[in-house]
Design a protein around this nucleic acid. Sequence first.
DNA 1: GTCTAATGTGACTCATGAGTCATTTTCGAC
DNA 2: GTCGAAAATGACTCATGAGTCACATTAGAC
Lengths: 219, 219
Amino acid sequence: MPTSTYHNLGTEKRDRLLRAAIIEFAEHDYASAKLDRIAARSKIPKGSFYQYFRGKEALYVHVVKHALDLTWEHFQRHSRRQRLRDCFELLEASTLHMFTLAKRHPELAAIYARVVYEPDTHLQSRLYPTYRAYSDEFHARFLTWGLATGDIDRQISPALIRFQVHALGTQWNRMILTGDWPPWMPAEERRRRQLVRQSIDRLRVGLGATDSGQLRVGA
Amino acid sequence: MPTSTYHNLGTEKRDRLLRAAIIEFAEHDYASAKLDRIAARSKIPKGSFYQYFRGKEALYVHVVKHALDLTWEHFQRHSRRQRLRDCFELLEASTLHMFTLAKRHPELAAIYARVVYEPDTHLQSRLYPTYRAYSDEFHARFLTWGLATGDIDRQISPALIRFQVHALGTQWNRMILTGDWPPWMPAEERRRRQLVRQSIDRLRVGLGATDSGQLRVGA
DNA sequence: GTCTAATGTGACTCATGAGTCATTTTCGAC
DNA sequence: GTCGAAAATGACTCATGAGTCACATTAGAC
C-alpha cells in the first residue's frame, strides 16, 4: 500500500513515479528491477521514494494492481463498443483485444504477462487474487451467457468447459502479450487474428449443443 | 559448457554437484539461486566450482539441458511400455506421464516448468532451442501419424491443428508440473486424469476427419 | 625421490542495490 | 514573521553473493 503522503502528492509527480515504475517492471522482473533506475527515470530521489512506499515490494504490488485495473478498463471500453451476439464473440473480442493492448500499451501488456504467466514468486500469491477476480468475472459472464442461450451444451462437465476456454484463452494471450510466437505461426497479424477466430469457431462447435453447430461464413 | 576438468571428475563427486545444482535451480529461479548454497549442499568448495564451470550461467545452462534430457528419456521409457493405438493416445500418454514425472522427479518437473513457462530471460534463448528440439520431435510424430492414418482431417490448416494441440498440452503440463491448479479443477488426481482424457477425446473429435464436409474451416 | 603441472581450497575483493538517517526545505497555523 | 510538523533529499550503511587469487595438495613423468 502506498502511504498517505503518496496520495497527497501532486498528480504530475505521482504520475511520473507511477509511469517510471510501470516501465521498469515491464522491462525487468521483480528481482532485476532497480529502484535506482526508477528514481533516475522519475527524477524522484531515492530517499523520497521511501516516503511513499514501504519498499520495493509495496511499490511492485501497487504498480501491478494498477496495471491490471487499467488493462481491464481498457478491455471494458473496447468491448462495449462492439455488438456481441453470443458468448463466443465475447471470447473473440477479449482475445483480439489483446492485439490492440500489446500495440498501444506494451508496458501494460508486459506486466500483465508477467503476473499471469510467471511462475510463483511469493508475490504471486498477493497479486493473483486481483487477476483472478477479473478473470472470474469474465468467465462467469461467458458461461452464464452461453448456458442461458443454449450455445453451450449443458451436458458437458463445467470443469471441461472451463478448461477448454481457459487453455485457448491463456495460450493466445500469452503469445500475443509476450510477443513470442512459435515458428509455426503465421507472421502477419491479419492471419493470426484469422486463426484466433478459427480456433474459437472450433470451440463453438465443440461446446455447442449437438444441433446448433453452424459456423459463420467469412473471415 | 563444463570444463574438461569437470569431465575428469569422479562420478560420485560430479553427481553430488549436479544433484545439488538441480535441487537449487528447481527451488529458485536463476537470479535467486545461489552458488554458495550449491557449494554447501554438494560439499564442494566455491573455488573448486570455478574449475568446472565458467560461472553461474554456464552451470545453469548445463543443468537445465541435462534436466531436459532426463525428462525426455523418462518419457521415452514410459511411452515405450505402452501400446499406443493412435496419435491421440500418444498425446494422452505424454500428458498423463507428467503426473508421474511430477510425483517421482519433482526437481526435474520444476526445472522443466521453469524453462518452458518462465518468460524470456536472455538465458531463455540459449535453452529454448533444446526444449523445442524435443517438442518438435513430439509434434512431428503426432502429426505425421495422425495424417497418415487419417485420424486428423487434412482439410484443417496445419497451424490450427498445431495451435490446438499446443494449447491443450501446454495448459495441462503447466498445471501438472507447477502444481498450481485453478480452484475449479477437481482435487483428486483420478478425476484430473479423467479430465485429461476427456479433453483429448474432444480434440480427437474436433480434429478428426468429418463426414459430409460440414466443417470447412481450413485456411 | 623430485620436479612440474594440474587441481583443490576458502578467505578475500568488489560491485551492487535496498534501505536509513541526519540535515534541509516547505508549508500551514497563528 | 515565527514556529513546529511534515516532506524532501542524497550521501551513507550494510548485507549479499559472484568471482578471484595466493597458496596447498595431489598425481604423473622421469
